[in-house]
Design a protein around this nucleic acid. Structure first.
Lengths: 139, 139
DNA sequence: GTAAACCTTGGAGTCGACTCCAAGGTCAAG
DNA sequence: CTTGACCTTGGAGTCGACTCCAAGGTTTAC
């Protein structure tokens, strides 16, 4: 039996619109249609959609996932390519974590600051911190 | 002396378009105009723009920065509010770092996988990993 | 036979922070 | 007096991954 778009969507945990969107973007093959024009999906399609969601949760973009699927569909082993993608993503994650960790320190320091008795003109401690940062960056 | 939009932009390290955009969004006051209609900025404005950039690098959204500036402009001490914003952002950062760190582990494991001799039908190890993840999530 | 719940399409709207464009006005230098 | 570098405005375009809509056709249940 074939599946309708909303059944695929439900089984994969996405919206029917998303399924149609993936098809439009070339991530899902165009399925055969019923006489009335309804999409009739192969029962393996929800798995493919879950693959998309899984890869997406790994931080890959739809375009990248599309690349992977395309290579896979052509029957070539995409592992090398996948590895490149994955390693690039790991590097991005490392960079982002370093950035966030530095940021966290600065924010935590900022959150410790107290308000009363400003000695910096008409600026408050937190704002002074912000502005000093801006000044450092540029000047 | 007053500054023109591109001078403000240069001193703050942004584009003239960005300066006009901030004005449109209410983050910068509408400056007086020259007879020809040119914006004539107070020399403190680049500092305000750097404040915006600084806060932005902290991960605050323009709308939030706008809130801060508005309170500041009204003469009220925004420290409590700033603190709320900053603490919220810290919580977000912690959540994001936890997510990324888990992700990194999974990706690193994936990158270690080797290609040859698939024993899982017509899927490659990396894809199997992806799909299994999808399957776990949903089923 | 009719109402609800699906399906189809194309196209617009969303968020965020801009950027880019066109079509014109202004100003300093040579 | 012209060239070129600025300025003005409003509005459209960008990226990403959808969501929502209208206006119609179909299928299913009662």
């Amino acid at each position: 039996m074939s599946l309708r778009v909303s059944q695929v969507a439900e089984q994969a945990g996405v919206s029917p619109d998303a399924v149609r969107f993936y098809e439009k973007e070339g991530l899902l093959p165009q399925p055969p249609r019923s006489p009335a024009g309804y999409r009739e999906y192969d029962p393996t399609v929800p798995q493919r959609v879950r693959f998309i969601k899984g890869a997406q949760e790994m931080g890959l973009k739809l375009a990248e996932i599309g690349e992977l699927l395309e290579i896979q569909d052509r029957g070539a082993c995409p592992c090398g390519h996948t590895k490149t993608l994955v390693e690039r993503r790991i590097a991005e994650i490392d960079a982002e974590m370093a950035r966030l960790s530095g940021l966290r320190v600065e924010l935590a320091e900022m959150a410790k600051l107290e308000c009363p008795a400003t000695d910096q003109g008409d600026l408050w401690p937190c704002e002074v911190t912000f502005i000093k940062r801006g000044g450092e960056r540029v000047g």
